[in-house]
Amino acid sequence: MKLSIYRYDPDKDAKPYMKDYDVQLEHSDRMLLDALVKLKSMDDSVAFRRSCREGVCGSDAININGKNGLACITKVADLPEHVTLRPLPGMPVIRDLIVDMTQFFKQYESIKPYVVNHDAPPERERLQSPDEREELNGLYECILCACCSTSCPSFWWNPDKFVGPAGLLQAYRFIADTRDQETAARLDNLEDPYRLFRCHTIMNCVDVCPKNLNPTRAIGKIKELMVKRSV
C-alpha cells in the first residue's frame, strides 16, 4: 500500500510537506490504523494519535483521501492502493497528523454538557420511560472525534463563534433528556447569529460521522424549538 502522509515537525521543519511511503501489509493488517502502526515500526517519527483501535475512543480521526474518518475502522480493502492522509482540516497542526483540538472542546464545553436538575435528588433513580430514553439514541453515542466539525465549512470559517455540529448534537442531547430542566437557558445560550444559525445544512457532518449520527437533524430540532417558543 502506498501512503502519502502530511509531515510537519515544527522542531525541525520550516514548513509542512507530503512524504510517500510503501507499506507492506500482512493478512492481519485489515484496517488503516494497522497500516499506520506498521509504518511507524519503519519510521518512528510519524506522529498520530490512537487508542482503542475499535472506533469508540475517537482518537484517530484523520483526513483520508479528502474525507474525514477513523483510521481504526476504515478497512484497507475499501481504500484505493494509494492513500493520502492529512490532519483534520481547519485545525492548527501540532505535528504530522496531530491537530490542536482546543477550540473544538471549548465549543463542546460551551453548551454546558451535563444534565441540570434543580429538584432534590430522590433516594433511587429518576424515572424515565423507554420512549423518553429512546430520544437520546443517536445523540449520546458521540465519541468527540471531531470528524464532523472539521468537515464543516461554517466551523472552518468561525470556529470560535459557531458551536459546530458535534457541540450542537450534544446541546440537543441535553435538551432531549427529560431529566434536564434547563431547556430555556440552553436555547438562550444558542440564540445568536453564529452559535447555532451558522449551520447551513450542508450535511458534511452526516456524511462523515463514523458512528452514523446525524447532527443536522439535531440542529434542525433545536431550530424548531427556537421557532416554537418565539410564536
Binding site: 420511560s129 423507554p130 423518553e132 430514553r133 433528556d177 434536564d180
Partner: peptide, 9 residues
C-alpha cells in the same frame, strides 16, 4: 443516573 448517565429503561 442522577448525573445524567443514559441507562436503558
Amino acid at each position: 443516573e442522577h448525573m445524567g448517565m443514559p441507562f436503558d429503561r
